[in-house]
Amino acid sequence: MIKRYPWLLAASLGNLLFLYAPIAVLILFSFNASRLSARWQGGTLQWYRLLAEDEALLAAVQNSLLVGLVSTVIATVLGVCAALALERFPFRGQRAIEGAILLPLVIPEVMMGVALMLFFVSIKLPLSLVTVTIGHAAFNLPIVVVIVRGRLRKLDPGLEEAARDLGASAWQAFHRVTVPLLMPAILGATLLAFTISLDDFIVTFFTAGPGATTLPLKVYSMVKSTVTPEINALSAILVLVSMGLIGLSLALQRKPV
C-alpha cells in the first residue's frame, strides 16, 4: 500500500512531523543546560529537580489529581447509568435526553466555562475546587456515555437473559455478567476522563476560585512572564503522562466483546 503510493507516505510523515516535532523540541529543551537561549548547551536534569522543590507547583499537582479523581468517579457513575438507560430501557423523550447529554461534546468549551461560572454564581456556590470538580464531571459525562454505550450496544442482550434464566436476579445478572463485560469500556472511559480533567484549562479557568489552582492554571501563570526550562520540564511530564493514559485507555477499549 505505502509502496504504491509514495505521496501517501510523505503526507503521513509530514503529518506526524507537524504534530510531534514541537513536542519533541519541548521535551529535548527540558534537558537543556542553558536557562535562556534556544541553543543546546549540554544536558541536565536540574529543571526537573527544581520542579520537585517548587511547593506551589506541587500544590497545583495535588489539586489536579484530586479534581481529576473525584470528577472522574462522578462522571463514570452517572455516565454508566445514563448509557444503560439509553441503551436498555427505551423511554419517551429519549432522543431529547440523549441530545441534551451529548451536547457538551459540541458546544465551545469557552461557552461551557462561562455558563458554568454564571450558574455557580447565580446559585451562590463560591468558586473553588468543588465547582471545578463539578465542571469537569459535566464535560466528562458525555464522553463516558459515548464509550460505555458503544460497548453496551455490541453486547448480546441474550447474555443477561441467559443469566436470568440460570437463576440470577436482575441485579445479579447486572453485576455478574454486564459489569464484567463492560469493564474494559468503563476503565477506558475513566482513564480518558481523568486525562481530560488533568489537562483542562478553559473550564477550570472559569470555575476556579482563589487558591483552587490546578496544574494547567499554574503553567499558564508561569508562562505569562517568560517560558522557562522548568515549564518545558513540566510540560514534558504532562505530555508523557497524558499520552500514557490515553494509550492505556485505547488498549482497554479494543478488548473484544
Binding site: G158, A162, A163, R164, D165, A168
Partner: peptide, 28 residues
C-alpha cells in the same frame, strides 16, 4: 425467569465470554 423450573439453550448459545467453560456451567 429466574424462578421458573426451566432452562433455555439459546439460539446463539449466549455463553458468558468472561467465564471459562467451568464458570459458564457452574453459573446456575
Amino acid at each position: 425467569p429466574n424462578h421458573r423450573p426451566v432452562n433455555l439453550v439459546f439460539q446463539h448459545y449466549a455463553l458468558f465470554p468472561h467465564l471459562t467453560v467451568f464458570g459458564n456451567v457452574s453459573f446456575g
